[in-house]
Design a protein around this nucleic acid. Structure first.
Length: 563
RNA sequence: UGGGGUGUAGCCAAGUGGUAAGGCAGCGGGUUUUGAUCCCGCCAUUCGCAGGUUCGAAUCCUGCCACCCCAGCCA
């Protein structure tokens, strides 16, 4: 694995192994259980677990539960489910920051004894004022020089619950004049009378991220602590903590840029807001960028892993086009998804020369490139549904579907010719009267005859009617949460992110689709039987992604040319 | 005005002094009973800009410019 380092982090790790600095690789994925994991986390999961796997090391799943006000067990369960679904295994390395509360406390005592931490009794407002600004240094707190004994006593009393929330904090004694604000005596512990989901009421003081995270890394023997760019200027603090304490290992923090995908937001706060406001159905709504949402949408885990691998790992800010994600999804789905036919916007076709009452059953391959997947049977009869936009009265020459007097092939069946267009009183096209050519049934020698187009269809009498949900991007602009003019991301919600087709006409064999099963509706896209709303015999389908559509491009180009 | 980062094609991304990989997108062509898939070809004389060093610079030096992050008792 050494020579094939795919990114700068793997390069560093390979070098560390080669130089003997480390003999093994230990990483961790440390989410805070205050929301669901999203596609950005997927990148971090793939990186941390992937690196460990590739270098024969191990990776911890560590729940960073140091703030009882925000965290919840339901999120812990969801996180485990999502990591597992993505294809990763933490073995017996499931940990919680709260497992180490006692050790954190001991570390705090050690800092106090060495004069490296003190109890500050300024209130929150005062602490902010004393901190200075980006360009002006801060000032020392009047409590900064309390004696070791006084600090020890106060801190012990903090733990014992003798003070109200906010009355005191424990601070590191570093440098109030540092250009790096994280070094201006950062807060290590705060008093918070809140019931913790794992430790209950054992504690009323809780450690801050920088303190808890650094020590957790060291206790677990993490060799490479991988995190996103916004923690870059926390690294001096990370290293300072490691310098002060007597810990079993010395991890190294390395930062990489977080994943940004166009037309998506990954702020947990904003995602939670969308749910609260009822803009989406929940954390697993198929439009959500959450792992649960993508799963319900029908994205295969392998597609997500492939996507993360293609995106790469660097320190550069980026905005990945959705097309890259969709390419990974289509690539997975094309290989495995069985084919079926479904008509979403039906137009009736009557085959005038097909005997009334007659039906037949036509075999059709489940997958054109994979004969081993077998065949399914398609009922065929006199009345059919075809897609409304597969017919055009005044068709351009490039349109090779059905037109008056024209021929088209019905996929897996016969060639038909359109003789007559029947209209209703409103003047709308109500039905097409066509003739079929009996010699051209698929499999027969007559089927060799070439026609320009092939369209999909469903026999009317045998059609399964089922709801189909057509999903599209949730937002109308690539960066909904970074608008230059300061407009709120709500303004960019896509009103057409979900279009419901209440009774699409589906090929009969689709009645057997199990929840979670993926199929390709030929010429339309990939669809999944919804895992929540499908009932036996009555599936509800979600559109995962459309097929590539070069006709749509031609049409668009024509439209452009007209202008 | 302090500190920390980042600039290679439309979007990502390799490149580590020897003459710009690869993917996505796009364009052109072939195969095709999915306008899908698959296959072939094209797509950076130039690496944020300006100087300098060198036989030779995306890579080294100097200066400049642009963008991102940091002032939670959040993570």
């Amino acid at each position: 694995m050494n020579e094939a380092a795919r990114d700068f982090i793997r390069q560093i790790i390979a070098d560390d192994l080669a130089s003997g600095r480390h003999r093994e690789v230990v990483t961790r994925f440390p989410p805070e259980p205050n929301g669901y994991l999203h596609i950005g986390h997927a990148k971090s999961i793939c990186l941390n677990f992937g690196v460990a796997e590739e270098f024969g090391g191990r990776c911890y799943l560590r729940l960073d539960d140091t703030n009882p006000l925000k965290e919840d067990q339901q999120f812990v369960d969801a996180i485990m489910r999502d990591v597992r679904w993505l294809g990763f295994d933490w073995g017996d390395r499931l940990t919680h920051a709260s497992d180490y509360f006692e050790q954190f406390y001991d570390c705090a005592l050690e800092l106090i004894r060495n004069g490296k931490a003190y109890v500050d009794s300024l209130n929150a407002e005062q602490i902010r004022a004393y901190r200075g600004t980006l360009t002006e240094p801060g000032r020392d707190s009047p409590y900064r020089d309390r004696s070791v004994d006084e600090n020890l006593e106060l801190f012990q009393r903090m733990r014992a619950g003798e003070f109200a929330d906010g009355e005191h904090v424990l601070r590191a004694r570093i440098d109030m004049a540092s250009g790096n604000i994280n070094l201006r005596d950062p807060i290590l512990y705060r008093i918070r009378r809140a019931r913790h989901q794992r430790t209950g009421d054992d504690w009323c003081i809780y450690p801050m991220y920088d303190f808890a995270h650094t020590i957790s890394d060291a206790l677990e023997g993490i060799t490479h602590s991988l995190c996103t760019l916004e923690f870059e200027d926390h690294r001096p603090l990370y290293d300072w903590i490691l310098d002060q304490l007597d810990l079993p290992s010395r991890p190294r923090q390395i930062e990489f840029s977080r994943l940004n995908v166009a037309y998506m937001i990954t702020s947990k706060r904003r995602l939670a807001q969308l749910i609260e406001e009822g803009r989406v159905g929940g954390w697993d709504d198929p439009r959500m960028p959450t792992i649960a949402g993508l799963r319900r949408r029908g994205y295969p885990p392998a597609a997500l892993r492939d996507f993360c691998a293609r995106v790469g790992v660097t320190k550069k800010e980026h905005l990945i086009e959705m097309a890259l994600l969709e390419n990974s999804v289509r690539e997975q789905l094309n290989a495995d998804a069985p084919r079926a036919m479904a008509v979403l916007d039906p137009l009736k076709v009557v085959l005038t020369n097909y005997p009334e009452g007659q039906t037949e059953s036509l075999p059709a391959a489940r997958h054109p490139q994979r004969p081993e997947l077998g065949e399914r049977e398609l009922p065929f009869s006199r009345e059919l549904w075809i897609e409304r936009d597969d017919f055009m009265e005044d068709a351009p020459k490039k349109f090779h579907r059905l037109k008056p007097g024209g021929e088209v092939r019905l996929r897996n069946a016969y060639i038909i010719r359109c003789d007559e267009v029947v209209r209703n009183e409103a003047g709308e096209i109500a039905e097409l009267r066509c003739r079929y050519d009996p010699d051209t049934r698929s499999g027969l020698p007559g089927a060799q005859r070439k026609v320009k187009g092939t369209i999909h269809w469903v026999a009317a009498a045998a059609a399964l009617e089922a709801p189909v949900r057509l999903y599209d991007r949730l937002f109308t602009v690539p960066r909904p949460d970074a608008d230059r003019s300061g407009r709120d991301f709500h303004e960019f919600l896509n009103p057409d992110s979900l279009r419901l087709v209440p009774d699409a006409k589906l090929e009969a064999s689709l009645a057997a689709a199990r929840p979670g099963e993926v199929v390709q509706f030929e010429r339309l896209g990939y669809f999944v039987a919804d895992s929540e709303d499908s009932k036996p015999g009555r599936p509800v389908f979600n559109r995962i992604v459309t097929l590539r559509d070069s006709w749509a491009k031609i049409e668009q180009a024509a439209l452009q040319a007209e202008r």
